[in-house]
């Protein structure tokens, strides 16, 4: 069984963070989350990290792996070589709580502000006859609110008030399928210097998204909608 080297960012707020090497034996079929969990279980119980579902549904285990935002639970060890350390650091642009742990509540509060519905009609079944007794089949929205896109976005680095890719993508989803949401309020939220117009198209959100959300495209569609709304207001004579 190969021995993997992990270089984890360790430390607590107030102190200076450092990178420490850990060695852990696991089969190549294992995932990065298994390696980190094993280090916690067998080597260092003070290691802080977030995880829950281990199959990219809860969005808890986002980190930076060799600089790039990933979910540890779907990052297979076989992608790496046992000869070179795998560097694992916490997500950027969130308050740091220590080791690999960050506080995601600022993002969650923004998502709550959008009121993004998380269950939708299963688009695949929309055109199929359902068995008697089933009115509809629902499924969760794609966004798992993991925060990878916020960490990868260079604009988030410079503008604390920026709504961020996940939130803008959520607004765009809600506008497309409002499910009782207040669309006028959502448009106002997005039509702001720190909203849809703040994006500089670095495209990293879409590149790191583990869940097919494609925030970059969503922001583009959102802007087209906002421009159309403005034209409508001009032609409609004010308001």
């Amino acid at each position: 069984m190969p021995t993997w080297q992990l270089r984890l960012l360790r430390g607590r707020p107030g102190g200076s963070p450092r990178l420490e090497i850990y060695r852990v034996e696991l089969p190549a079929e294992a995932y990065l989350i298994d390696a980190v969990e094993k280090i916690w279980a067998e080597q260092d119980r003070s290691l802080l990290f977030r995880h829950a579902c281990h199959h990219a549904s809860c969005g808890a285990c986002g980190v930076r792996v060799n600089g790039r935002e990933r979910l540890m639970c779907i990052t297979p060890l076989r992608e790496f070589s046992p000869d070179r350390p795998i560097q694992v650091e916490p997500l950027r642009h969130f308050p740091w709580l220590g080791d690999l742990l960050v506080d995601v509540s600022p993002m969650m509060r923004r998502m709550a502000e959008v009121g993004f519905a998380i269950v939708r009609q299963d688009e695949l079944t929309a055109d199929r006859p359902l068995p008697e007794g089933i009115e509809r089949i629902t499924r969760f929205e794609d966004c798992i609110e993991c925060g990878l896109c916020l960490s990868a976005c260079p604009v988030m680095a410079a503008d604390e008030a920026y709504l961020g890719p996940a939130t803008l993508a959520a607004i765009e989803r809600m506008l497309k399928e409002p499910r009782g949401g207040d669309t006028a309020r959502l448009l106002t939220l997005a039509d702001d210097p720190h909203g849809a117009w703040r994006c500089h198209s670095a495209m990293e959100c879409t590149a790191v998204c583990p869940s097919n959300v494609d925030p970059a495209s969503a922001i583009g569609r959102l802007r087209r909608r906002l421009i159309a709304e403005r034209f409508r207001r001009w032609i409609g004579g004010g308001r």
Binding site: E42, S57, F140
Partner: peptide, 26 residues
């Protein structure tokens, strides 16, 4: 079990002593 964009096959069943870390039998 399907969920979002995945499908999850399960499960197996064996007794473990330490639930902290469970190596996955191949």
């Amino acid at each position: 079990v399907p969920q979002r964009r995945t499908a999850i096959i399960g499960t197996t069943s064996w007794r473990v002593e330490d639930p902290d870390f469970i190596p996955i039998p191949e």
